[in-house]
Structure formats: structure tokens, C-alpha cells
């Protein structure tokens, strides 16, 4: 295999990986973006993701319909989001800490109830083959696009548009930027945050169902390797912009595909670091892109993480 062929293989793998691996990051980061825009941070989305993955798989197994699984995963995500939103409404309760606690609880509960679902094969989400024009099987596979990826893309666009152009978007942004201003406008701040966190939980649950129902498409206890937590980092370097969340998720997916792709073309020394590429990349981007001198553009100023 020539050098050009090698490079093309790696690039194609990263492109394909970007589409395959990015969807859970995309959904969780959109959910987190909405939550944070309203001025709260929910670190518990990792637990929501894992519980959503388990629930989606279980429902798909019992009903035979993967889409019902996705819906169920979203609904349990709502429940987790609502718990977070409600508890953080109480005075003196720290949203970051509650998030960590819910992460532990969600993961533990998913492991507990997920035991019977490790072995059976549930119906998986179908994918849309868009690569029929190519006779290269790798290209065809890369363009086997999951409908959730497409939905996620349109969701990102819709959120981006809604934040700018709708009354709801204004309400959420105002709530996140200044509690006093929002109160002066007659906005029920707590309710907006509760709703934003609940809907954010829905997205995270759906993101989890992608893991168990699409790619890799199976439920096991090792399914999430911190995707839900990483999504929080993605939101920060996406500067709370849903379209940038999409880009960041894509980048992260591509970085995740780098390690296996390099090994497949025979470059395997130091594969531990290639495998850690998403984390190293994220840290590097944060260090370069963030600056303490000025407030982050787009950062909701009520957010505890930016204070």
C-alpha cells in the first residue's frame, strides 16, 4: 500500500468514524447546551446516557421496535433531567455536585436493571445507505448514515435558529445570562431551568439509545467510556453554539477513530496515545481557545462553571 493510499485510508476512516461515533456526543452536547444556556450545568448526563442506553435496548428487545426504545430512552432522560432541575431549584443545592451524584445513581441503576439485557440481541435502528454511488465498500460503509445522526444535525440547526429568532430562545438566553433581568421581565426562572434541564435530559437519553441501538449497537456495562462527561467539555469549546456543538462532536468522533485507523495501516507504536487523542485534543483546544482575560463569548453568565 502506497503512502497516498495509507493516508486516504486513515482519512476515510476518520470521516466514517466522525459520522459513526459522533452521534451520542452530538445529542448529549445539545442537551447540555440547552441546559447551560438556561444557566445550569448538568454533569449527570453521563448517568442519563447510560440509563437511556439500557432502557432503549430493553424496550427494543421487548417490543421489537427500536424507535420505541429511542422514545423510552428520551423519556427516562426527561425523568433524570427533571430530578436534576427540581433539586437544583432548592436553595443552596450545588448543580455540579447533584450532577455527579445523579451520574453515579444513573450508572448504578442502569447496571442493576441491565443485567438481563447483556446477552440478548435487540432490534437495531436501520441505517440509510447513501453510498450506493461508490463501488468502494469502505466508502459505502462510511455513508451508511444513521437516521439519528441526521435528526441530530437538524436539531442542532433548529436549536441554533430558535435561540436567535424565537421568544422561547430569548427567554432561555435571558434566564441564563441574568437572573435579575429575567425576573424583571416576568420570567419564572426556576421553571425555565427545570424545563431546559428536562428537555436536555431527553436529548441525552436519546444519545444513549444510539449507543445501544445503533453503534456499537449492543448493551453492556462498558458501553459508555465517559461520552456523557466529554459532551460537557464539547459544549464549552463549542461556545454554547448548537451548530458548533455539531462541529465539535464530529471532530471528537474523528479523533476517536484515529487510533484503530492508524493501527489498521500498520502504524501502531504508541497506540495508547492515539486512542487518547480525543482527550488530548480537547484539552489542547481548551488551553489554546479559552482565555481568562475576557468573558467567553456566548457563555451564559449565570453558569456556575464560568463564574
Amino acid at each position: 500500500m502506497g503512502d497516498e493510499g495509507t493516508l486516504a485510508t486513515v482519512l476515510l476512516a476518520m470521516f466514517a468514524g466522525a459520522i459513526r461515533v459522533s452521534t451520542p456526543f452530538l445529542f448529549v452536547s445539545l442537551g447540555e447546551c440547552l441546559t447551560e444556556k438556561a444557566g445550569r450545568i448538568n454533569l449527570g448526563l453521563e448517568g442519563t446516557l447510560v440509563f437511556g442506553a439500557m432502557t432503549g435496548y430493553a424496550l427494543s428487545l421487548h417490543t421489537g421496535s427500536p424507535w420505541l426504545g429511542v422514545l423510552a430512552a428520551g423519556l427516562v432522560g426527561c425523568v433524570f433531567g427533571a430530578i436534576h432541575g427540581y433539586l437544583c431549584k432548592l436553595p443552596k443545592v450545588n448543580d455540579i455536585a447533584i450532577g455527579i451524584a445523579l451520574m453515579l445513581f444513573g450508572t448504578g441503576a442502569a447496571f442493576f436493571f441491565g443485567k438481563p439485557y447483556i446477552q440478548p440481541q435487540a432490534a437495531r435502528l436501520p441505517s440509510i445507505p447513501l453510498g450506493g454511488w461508490s463501488d468502494n465498500p469502505a466508502v459505502q460503509q462510511a455513508l451508511e448514515i444513521n437516521p439519528l445522526f441526521i435528526i441530530g444535525f437538524f436539531l442542532a440547526v433548529a436549536m441554533w435558529w430558535a435561540f436567535r429568532n424565537t421568544r422561547w430562545g430569548l427567554v432561555v438566553r435571558t434566564t441564563g445570562d441574568s437572573t435579575p433581568a429575567a425576573v424583571a421581565l416576568g420570567i419564572d426562572v426556576d421553571r425555565v431551568r427545570l424545563l431546559a434541564t428536562t428537555v436536555g435530559g431527553f436529548f441525552a437519553g436519546v444519545g444513549g439509545s444510539f449507543l445501544s441501538l445503533s453503534y456499537p449497537g449492543s448493551w453492556s456495562e462498558g458501553l459508555s467510556s465517559g461520552q456523557g462527561l466529554m459532551a460537557v467539555a464539547l459544549v464549552i469549546f463549542a461556545r454554547w453554539n448548537p451548530l458548533a456543538c455539531f462541529g465539535a462532536a464530529i471532530l471528537f468522533g474523528a479523533a476517536g477513530a484515529l487510533g484503530p485507523a492508524l493501527q489498521s495501516v500498520g502504524i501502531s507504536e504508541g497506540y495508547h496515545f492515539f486512542n487518547a487523542a480525543p482527550y488530548i485534543l480537547t484539552l489542547a483546544i481548551l488551553v489554546v481557545a479559552v482565555s481568562p482575560k475576557r468573558a467567553l463569548r456566548g457563555a451564559p453568565s449565570e453558569l456556575s462553571i464560568t463564574k
Partner: peptide, 22 residues
């Protein structure tokens, strides 16, 4: 990185955990 670059410590410490493993 928190002080000089304003990088959130919750996230950077988590990232550094994954890097420590590698």
C-alpha cells in the same frame, strides 16, 4: 490551566484522568 488560561477545572481534570491512563 485554570488560572492562566481559564480552562474549567472539572473538565480539564477529567481529561487528564484519561490521559494518565494512557
Amino acid at each position: 490551566v485554570r488560572h492562566y488560561r481559564g480552562v474549567n477545572e472539572t473538565i480539564s481534570s477529567l481529561l487528564l484522568f484519561y490521559i494518565a491512563v494512557s
